[in-house]
Design a protein around this nucleic acid. Structure first.
Lengths: 226, 226
DNA sequence: TTTTTTCTCGTCACTCTGACGATAATCGAT
DNA sequence: ATCGATTATCGTCAGAGTGACGAGAAAAAA
């Protein structure tokens, strides 16, 4: 049997919410091709390594942390014949959602790493497309799953959860209706009994993520397409 | 730069609805490994071929047809180090939804091909898992997209559309409420003006798929988990 | 104390849904 | 031709969910 050989990489779309805005973790490439351009963090899959293990390893290398509280899932694969000038490379993209850590973001083979607000980047390879697909996946999953909690620390307020939705969707949400929705949807969040202190305004109760894996009923965007 | 080499295949989860039941297109393997066992149709990606092109090519080879009216999307990639005894093989799985064609299902390198009702198969490789993932994807997508029409011929009745939902979800649906839902959801279906003839019961109006890519509001299952 | 800020609870009208009745239009049998 | 069986289509109604918004509660800041 004769068949062509490929290299396989994993690339990561790592998203977080800082200052009410959605940010992606990007690295400046320290090697050819595309030396000096921003790109998604990633690297080659090792010889005896599962795809998910490779993604988790890269995530650890790039962020220094794959702690609980985050989320990692496969996004999709990209394998256009000309997507990498070095040869035939198929990349398996993963989507990671993390709380806003005071992350040092030190890269190993990357010249620089940074959280950049999502928008128009001219990323290397086909990474613009992959990033856009990852963002759309995140937007969509916030509707039907409790995944917004992956952007939050272990204990969080309903307002913080709402700000995640607002940042990811780019929409304003009525605080009172969202509060009702989040607290009455079974399994979304659970009260911890504690409250915030020292913040302006009335103290807010703290919650942790609930046990549900699916939100029923879902929290729908106004404009699911754009 | 040194990196391990992989083979890359595409595997297809091809689903259709026949006689009110969900069926998958399976082939009996004509080669080692797993000679003689049922498996998903698929094959190696060619040297200068895009992943989606490879999936479309395999679909054409196995079903003899990739006509309009169907649907093809990437499902996910599977790359456990030991999933193929021949070496390191990553497969990119695709999900295809087709109307119930009188398909000859002739295989090229497969000994046999058949539509089998989905259930417990002991498929080759990790294909049981891939098939299960494909079915779950289809079930989920029927909620939020007009993809049920991909299972139908170009013109279809509301009852036929409902039977698609019933077959894929394994749930009974009230014909009157479903009729209201399907006909009032904007962009789901459009009347053609024609009706069925010669069938028992009152003639039913024929519809074609509408322009919507998302159902808003969605049609939700009772039990989204199982 | 007063003002400001933010959280939390309530109200109300509107829409959507599930359950189900009723009528319409055909086929097949008498 | 008439009747019954079958299926499609339309209506009704109560309950749940949602968006828009008012109002009180509890803290920090002025």
């Amino acid at each position: 049997m004769n068949y062509p050989v490929f290299a396989v990489t994993v690339d990561l779309v790592v998203l977080t919410v800082r200052d009410g805005e959605l940010h992606a973790l990007l690295v400046r490439r320290g090697l050819e091709p595309h030396l000096g351009r921003w790109a998604l963090p990633g690297g080659f899959v090792h010889a005896d390594e599962d795809l998910t293990a490779a993604a988790r390893r890269e995530l650890g290398e790039e962020t220094g942390l794959d702690g609980p509280g985050g989320h990692l899932e496969q996004l999709g694969s990209y394998g256009a014949p000309d997507r990498d000038p070095r040869g035939r490379v198929v990349t398996v993209a993963y989507l990671a959602l993390l709380p806003d850590l005071p992350t040092p973001t030190a890269g190993t083979d990357a010249a620089e790493a940074a959280w950049l607000p999502v928008g128009r980047h001219g990323l290397a390879f086909d990474h613009d497309r992959i990033l856009a697909d990852g963002i759309e996946r995140a937007r969509s999953k916030l509707e039907y799953t409790p995944l917004a909690t992956a952007f939050c620390p272990p204990e969080f307020t309903i307002a913080a959860l709402r700000q995640v939705y607002e940042a990811v969707w780019g929409e304003q949400i009525d605080p009172r209706n969202f509060h009702r929705k989040a607290t009455t949807t079974p399994g979304f969040v659970e009260p911890t009994g504690r409250s915030t202190e020292g913040e302006p305004g009335r103290p807010a109760r703290l919650y942790r993520r609930g046990e549900a894996t699916l939100l029923n009923p879902p929290i729908l965007r106004r404009n699911p397409g754009g």
